[in-house]
Simulated scan of single mutants.
Amino acid sequence: MTASGLVERHAVPGNHRTVLLAPSPRALDLLSRYDHAGAATHPVLARLVAELEHHP
C-alpha cells in the first residue's frame, strides 16, 4: 500500500523498531469519494430491498 501511495510510514522518534502507518492524502480522497458514492446509492438500494420484501 505504501508503493501505491495509499499509506505513509512515519518513524517513531527514539524507537527504531516501530513505524506509524497513516493514510495518505490520496487514500483519504479515495475514501471520501467512495463514501459519497455509497451514500448516493444507499437510499436506492434500501427502496429496492423494501420492494423485494413485499413481493413474494
Rank of each mutant, 00 (worst) to 15 (best):
S24H: 04
V12K: 07
H55R: 14
R9W: 04
L28K: 08
L45Q: 13
V44T: 13
M1K: 09
S24R: 01
H16R: 10
L20W: 06
H36L: 11
V49M: 07
R26D: 04
G38K: 04
R9Y: 03
Y34G: 03
T2D: 09
L48T: 12
R17F: 02
V7T: 15
V44I: 13
L45D: 11
V49H: 13
L31G: 11
H36T: 12
P56Y: 08
E51S: 14
M1Q: 11
H42L: 15
R33V: 03
H54K: 15
H42A: 14
Y34I: 09
R47S: 10
P23H: 05
V44Q: 11
L30E: 06
G14H: 03
P13I: 09
L20Q: 11
V49S: 10
V12T: 05
L6D: 03
R33K: 13
G14M: 00
A40K: 13
P13H: 01
E8G: 00
L52I: 13
L31F: 13
L28G: 00
E51V: 05
M1I: 07
S24C: 03
V12E: 06
G5S: 02
H54E: 14
V44H: 11
H16A: 07
P23A: 07
H36Q: 15
L6K: 00
L52A: 15
Y34P: 03
R9F: 02
M1D: 10
G5N: 00
A46I: 05
V49T: 11
D35S: 12
T2A: 09
L21E: 14
V19G: 03
R17I: 02
R26G: 01
L28C: 05
V19P: 06
A22K: 12
T41S: 14
A11G: 05
P13A: 07
A27K: 10
A11E: 11
L6N: 00
P25E: 08
R26T: 12
R26M: 08
A40N: 09
H42Q: 15
M1H: 08
P13C: 05
V19S: 10
P13M: 05
R9N: 04
R9D: 06
G14I: 01
V44N: 08
H54P: 00
E51K: 15
L6I: 00
E53V: 07
L6V: 01
A3E: 14
P25L: 01
D29L: 12
A39M: 10
L48M: 14
T2N: 10
G14E: 03
V7Y: 02
L45R: 15
L48R: 15
A3Q: 12
V49R: 15
E53C: 10
L48C: 05
A3H: 09
H54N: 13
T41D: 14
Y34E: 08
V19A: 07
T2K: 11
Y34W: 14
P25M: 06
H36E: 15
L30A: 05
E8K: 02
N15A: 00
R17T: 08
A50E: 13
L21D: 05
R47P: 00
